[in-house]
Simulated assay, not measured.
Amino acid sequence: MTAASRPVALITGATRGIGRAIASELARTHHVIIGGRSRAAVDAVVAELGDASAFVADLAELSSIADRAAMLPELDVLVHSAGLIGPHEPIAEVNVDDLLQVFTVNVAAVHELTRITLPGLRARSGSVITINSGSGFTSHPNSSVYSASKFALRAWSDALRDEERAHGVRVTSIHPGRVATDMQQELRAMEGGEYREDDYLTPAAVAQAVRLAVETPRGGNIDELQIRPQ
């Protein structure tokens, strides 16, 4: 990959749901790098958006992140949108391997991809945006694994923000409420509840929150943003 003439934004989990909406929104002003596990799905989005390129990696395999990220250009924006829900079970029934898988994707992969791309982000005075959740503030029965990973991601984002102020890198943690996505349908099925699309945020609303963070004039930073269904 080579740096494009426009600002460069990498979005993980960009082949569907929130990540896909963010990619479409940022593609209006940025060269977007589409992150995803499936080569076919990534290539389809790249072809649709035009000024885009591919970042195919399984975030559950940390070694593959290191191999692929070394080929990335310097980034102006890094959006961590990929994530796993994990088991929807009481703590007494959660398998530790399932817990570790969720923490690998939701926390460790975020750390590793940011760590590797941070020199370029510093050079471009870039932005790191983590797509968190309302579960990053409040946990509920049967959601211990997902909530714990999002609490951890919030703490990690807070630390990165303070560490990188002196380097000119801005860090924003975005906490959507429930969003109308495939993941939401999966969650509602786990909960045994009805999925009604109109009850939830649109992915485009979250993408607009990302746009707000990216376009905040220099000298200011949106540290944390919560957006909920109206």
Rank of each mutant, 00 (worst) to 15 (best):
N95M: 11
A148H: 07
V110P: 00
S133W: 06
S127L: 12
I116V: 14
S133K: 05
F103N: 11
H111G: 05
L153E: 11
V105A: 03
Y146V: 10
A155L: 09
D97Y: 02
R122Q: 15
P141L: 08
L118M: 15
S139R: 02
W156P: 00
F103T: 05
L99Q: 09
N132Q: 09
T130L: 05
A152Y: 07
E93Q: 15
T114Y: 02
I131P: 03
G136V: 07
V107K: 09
A92F: 08
R115Q: 12
F151N: 02
S144D: 02
A92W: 04
A148V: 01
S127N: 12
I91C: 14
I91N: 08
P119V: 03
Q101G: 14
V110D: 00
T104E: 02
V94W: 08
E112K: 12
T117S: 14
Y146G: 09
T138E: 13
S135A: 14
L99I: 11
A152E: 01
G134H: 05
N142L: 06
I131W: 03
N132Y: 04
R115Y: 08
D98I: 00
H88K: 01
I129H: 08
T117F: 00
F103G: 00
H88P: 00
I131H: 02
S144E: 13
S143M: 13
T130V: 14
R124V: 01
I91H: 04
N132G: 03
W156H: 11
T138R: 14
I131Q: 00
A109D: 07
I91E: 07
N95I: 08
A109H: 07
A108T: 14
H88G: 04
E89P: 03
F103V: 01
E112N: 09
F137E: 06
A123M: 03
D98R: 10
S139P: 08
L153A: 12
I131T: 04
N106A: 09
F103L: 15
L100S: 14
H88W: 14
F151I: 09
D98S: 13
L153V: 09
E93L: 14
A123P: 02
I131S: 04
I91T: 13
R124S: 07
L121V: 01
T114L: 02
F103A: 02
L121N: 05
R124Y: 10
S144M: 04
R122Y: 05
S144I: 03
N142E: 11
G126A: 09
F103W: 12
A155I: 02
H111P: 03
S139G: 15
D97Q: 13
S143F: 11
G134E: 13
L113W: 01
K150C: 05
I116E: 00
L100K: 12
H140F: 15
F103M: 15
N132H: 00
Q101V: 07
W156E: 03
W156K: 00
E112M: 10
S125R: 13
V105K: 02
D98Q: 14
V128H: 06
R122C: 13
R154G: 07
S125Y: 06
I116R: 10
